[in-house]
Structures are given as C-alpha cells and as structure tokens.
Amino acid sequence: MDAISLIVRSIFVDNMIFAYFLGMCSFLAVSKNVKTALGLGVAVTFVLVLTLPINYMLENYVLKAGALQWLGEEYAGVDLSVFSLLVFIAIIASFVQLVEMVIERFSPSLYNSLGIFLPLIAVNCAILGGSLFMQQREFANVGLATAYGFGSGIGWLLAIVGMAAIREKLEYSHVPKPLKGLGITFIITALMAIGFMSFSGIDI
C-alpha cells in the first residue's frame, strides 16, 4: 500500500520535471515528436528502476555511517558517505552503457533517432537526482526505493510525451519571432508546471 501511494505521489505531486526541474536538458531537446519522446521516456524509466535499488543497497550496506557493521564490530565507525556521489554516478554510467547496447541491438531506428541523448542519459539530472533524493529521504526498504524510481520515471515519461504532443500541434501557430523554438517551449513548460501544482498538497 505504501508503495502504491509512493508511486502516485512521485508521478503527480513530486514530478521530476514540474516540481524539481530535473532532466530539463533532454526534456527540452528531445520533445519535438511523440515517438522519440516515448522512447527516451521508457529508457529513462528503465535506468531509474534498475539503478535506484542498487544505489539503495550500496548506500545502506556500504556507504552510510556505520553501514559496514555487518563486516564486524571494528568497521562500525567507518563513514564512506563522501564517496556516495562517485559511486552513484559510476553505477548510473555503467547502466546507461548497458541500455545503449540493448537498444542498439533491438531497435536500431530508435537508437538513431535518440542520437547523442542516449549516452547523455548518464548525465540526465533526473536519474542522479532520483538517487540523491533516495539518499535524503531514507526510504525504509529496497521495495520502496524501487517504487520511487518507477514512479519518478513514469512521471518524467508523462511530462515529456505531453510536451511533445503539444509541440507537434504548435507547428501551426503564430509565435512571436524572438520566442520561437526555445522561448515558447519554456513558457509551455511553466504553464504545465503550474497545472501540475494543483496536485501539490494532496495527501495520499
């Protein structure tokens, strides 16, 4: 039950893009058509679901102050938390490499349309952000951490697909010249974010 409410919360209330603006770079650059956006969204969700439990385990059994206690009493005072950033990003980078190989093997067309943004998932703030928020919120068990990763990923996917759909329709509208492209995308994002704020304060 906890897991379900956590998923719903992280999709709507704590949406990665609209509440924290994480993963904006690829959000702005890859949201030109729905199909590519969907592909990237799925890839991001996949990486989040895989990396969050691993990072959670590392955080709780290796990195945190006193986490090494299971090795014996003399390790109880070891605090490796300064290395958490390094460890998290290394895990994420290697999983992105894995996803890249899988996509290249099974869907070359998606691989080509994602282009440079596939390796850049490694530096997608949404993914490292997921791990850092997980560290900050101290989830009770690994299941909750996975649920959080899944919800955040789906929320990101929802946002980028919605944005891509709006931008496809935007082709036919008259936008002031200096606002074309980037400017109007920013304004739409802001309006969508204000829309998503209506979810905040909902307690599930």
Binding site: P176, P178, G183, F186, A190, A193, M197
Partner: peptide, 25 residues
C-alpha cells in the same frame, strides 16, 4: 513557486533574442 523561474528565463530569452536577431529560430 518553481514555475515562475522558468517563466523568467523565457522572458530573458525573449529580450535576448529580440536584440540578437541571428539567434531566432
């Protein structure tokens, strides 16, 4: 609120691109 930050950046882009016409898309 967070959305206003992005709206402000949009305004900066608007002013900046009105001045630098070659950047307009």
């Amino acid at each position: 609120l967070a959305p206003m930050a992005i709206l402000l950046v949009a305004c900066i882009i608007w002013v900046h691109r009105s001045k630098n016409k070659e950047l307009q898309e």
